[in-house]
Structure formats: C-alpha cells, structure tokens
Amino acid sequence: MLTGFTKRTIDYYTNMGLLEAERSSSNYRFYDHSCIEKLQYIEKCKQENQSLEQIKKSLQERDAKEIDILELRLKMKGLEKELSQALEQKGDKEVQDLLKKGLSKESFSLIQALLLLLN
C-alpha cells in the first residue's frame, strides 16, 4: 500500500472518524492527500503512546484551528479589497507615495486592515 497501512487499519480509522473518505457511485472509498498526512500524524501519536481517542480529539482540534485560519484569511481578503477600493476612490497622496516607493497596494491595504483591527 502507498501508506504502509493495511486496508483493515484504514477502514478502522475511517469508522472511528479519524479519516474521512469520499464515496464513489459503486461505494468505493477515495481518500485525498490530507489523509496520508493524517495517517502519518496518527502513527507519530501512537509512537508517543497516545490512545486513539486522544488522537481523534487532537485531530479535531487541529482541523478546527485550520478552519479558523481559513476564515481569518477570507476576512482579511475582504478587508483588503474594501480598503483598496476605498483608497483608490479617495486618491490619497500617501497611497500614491507608498506605491511609488515600491510598496504594493495589497501590502498597504493589509497594513491598513491590521491597524484597523488593532484599534
């Protein structure tokens, strides 16, 4: 097997909720690349004598953090776009000076967004 794990082990982990699989029309399971990373993580945790329940909780926490980071990135993109549009409309001399100095509009917008969030 590509992962070094038996089909039985992968099925067991899937049934426990440690792995997620897509199903084909003929009911075969398909796993994406993230499952290989999870299998490596599970193996590492097992070597540290963690129980499968501890590993499951750890994976859920890790997934929740990744979702939070993605949501934050989406919010930052939205703020960046809004600021960029507002600054373009305003025609702010400071923005034009920064652009001439080589700071991208996106970087400036991100800085502005971060300053707004910190205030």
Results as ranks from 00 to 15, higher is better:
Arg8Asn: 06
Arg8Ala: 07
Ile10Val: 10
Ile10Tyr: 06
Asp11Cys: 01
Asp11Leu: 03
Asp11Ser: 02
Asp11Ala: 02
Tyr12Leu: 08
Tyr12Ser: 03
Tyr12Phe: 11
Tyr12Arg: 07
Tyr13Ser: 00
Tyr13Asn: 01
Thr14Trp: 06
Thr14Pro: 02
Asn15Arg: 08
Asn15Ile: 10
Met16Asn: 07
Gly17Ala: 07
Leu18Gln: 05
Leu19Ile: 09
Leu19Asn: 04
Leu19Tyr: 12
Leu19Ala: 09
Glu20Cys: 11
Glu20Met: 09
Glu20Arg: 08
Glu20His: 13
Glu20Thr: 08
Glu20Ala: 07
Ala21Arg: 10
Ala21Cys: 12
Ala21Glu: 04
Ala21Thr: 08
Glu22Gln: 14
Glu22Pro: 02
Glu22Arg: 13
Glu22Phe: 08
Glu22His: 12
Arg23Leu: 06
Arg23Cys: 05
Arg23Asp: 03
Arg23Ser: 06
Ser24Asp: 08
Ser24Ile: 12
Ser25Tyr: 01
Ser25Gly: 06
Ser25Glu: 03
Ser25Trp: 00
Ser25Ile: 02
Ser26Phe: 07
Ser26Asp: 11
Asn27Tyr: 04
Asn27Thr: 13
Tyr28Met: 13
Arg29Gly: 07
Arg29Cys: 10
Phe30Tyr: 15
Phe30Thr: 13
Phe30Met: 14
Phe30Leu: 14
Phe30Lys: 15
Tyr31Trp: 10
Tyr31Met: 08
Asp32Val: 11
His33Ala: 14
His33Glu: 14
His33Tyr: 09
His33Ile: 12
His33Lys: 14
Cys35Ser: 15
Cys35Gly: 11
Ile36Trp: 00
Ile36Lys: 04
Ile36Pro: 01
Ile36Val: 12
Lys38His: 13
Gln40Ile: 05
Gln40Thr: 08
Gln40Met: 05
Tyr41Phe: 14
Tyr41Met: 07
Tyr41Arg: 14
Tyr41Leu: 07
Tyr41Cys: 03
Ile42Phe: 03
Ile42Leu: 03
Ile42Trp: 00
Glu43Leu: 05
Glu43Phe: 00
Cys45Lys: 05
Lys46Phe: 03
Lys46His: 11
Gln47Glu: 11
Gln47Phe: 04
Gln47Lys: 15
Gln47Thr: 13
Glu48Gln: 08
Glu48Tyr: 02
Asn49Cys: 00
Asn49Leu: 04
Asn49Val: 00
Asn49Ile: 01
Gln50Pro: 02
Gln50Tyr: 15
Gln50Ser: 08
Leu52Tyr: 11
Leu52Ser: 04
Glu53Ser: 11
Glu53Gly: 07
Glu53Gln: 10
Glu53Val: 10
Gln54Val: 15
Gln54Ser: 10
Ile55Asn: 01
Ile55Arg: 01
Ile55Val: 14
